[in-house]
Design a protein around this nucleic acid. Structure first.
Lengths: 148, 148
DNA sequence: GTAGTTGCAAAGTGTTTGCAGGCAG
DNA sequence: CTGCCTGCAAACACTTTGCAACTAC
């Protein structure tokens, strides 16, 4: 499974990746996957559409949203919810957390390997943890905030 | 500072609380504060408006949003961003984290006291941590998820 | 060929804004 | 009185949906 940034991904690689996940590789899906996986950044639907349509118009808004939802279901990407106004999509499906720059809206990965949470209470009856997301909201060091 | 659920809060208590935070206590603001602090749940703007207007219509949508934004600025409440479709407002301003029931949308507090995070990498240059939010997404124990 | 995919535009949410009238101090 | 609040409705941004035309296999 492809995980980390790789600007040299070919369309064929993408088609393969999609097929591996049970997704019919169409032109639009390949372009969207390519955008996500070659940049390997956290992009919003808007940014993805803009990026895909940079040269010539290749997809519509509806297709971008449909495709992202599909990728999500198939476990190809994850969504990151930090900004009330939009969802970010994350091509990194390995367990990890995020720094969120409140001023710029920039999102950065934190490797989960080194991190550990202790003292988490028991889950409520009959519940299972789906995921644990840690978001460290950061900002430039003026206007007071607590130090880590 | 008032922190925990208290169904017997009076309007006067609310007026005082608002004044303590430098907020002019108007009828609408008192009702909104009362709803938040007496229930001490995580409510969305919609739910707050519905709750406040239960008996007779007392506030408009605009006023609810304005007031919540004001409370936020003044540090009376916090916002919790877990659901891409809406923001929740949290009257508990003490450091704490959340369980988020993905099926029901229900949000539950986790006391921060007992918890500890280790291995958090250094913040990027010139950055200060604003807050650290941990969201444990949970669901009823069918349809596999990882155990905590 | 046929099921599945796409694009458009229109509808749907939650949230924000502009402005006239109203209320607190 | 005077400035801040309120309410309405219209504007907004993001996301979803319905449906006819199209494309991968």
């Amino acid at each position: 499974m492809l995980k980390h940034a790789n600007p040299n991904l070919s369309r064929e690689d993408m088609a393969l990746l999609l097929r591996e996940h049970g997704i019919t590789p169409t032109h639009q899906r390949i372009e969207i996957a390519h955008t996500l996986f070659s940049r390997c950044e956290h992009l919003s639907a808007d940014q993805i559409m803009a990026s895909v349509n940079l040269r010539h118009s290749e997809t519509s808004k509806a297709t971008v949203y449909n495709t992202l939802k599909l990728f999500l279901e198939k476990g190809l990407i994850r969504e990151v919810i930090v900004d009330p106004s939009k969802v970010f999509y994350d091509p990194n499906t390995a367990p990890h957390h995020h720094f969120f720059n409140v001023e710029s809206g920039e999102l950065t990965d934190i490797e989960a390997d080194a991190m550990q949470i202790s003292g988490l209470p028991e889950l409520p009856q009959g519940m299972v943890a789906d995921s644990v997301d840690i978001i460290v909201r950061i900002r430039p060091s003026h206007s007071g905030g607590l130090h880590a």
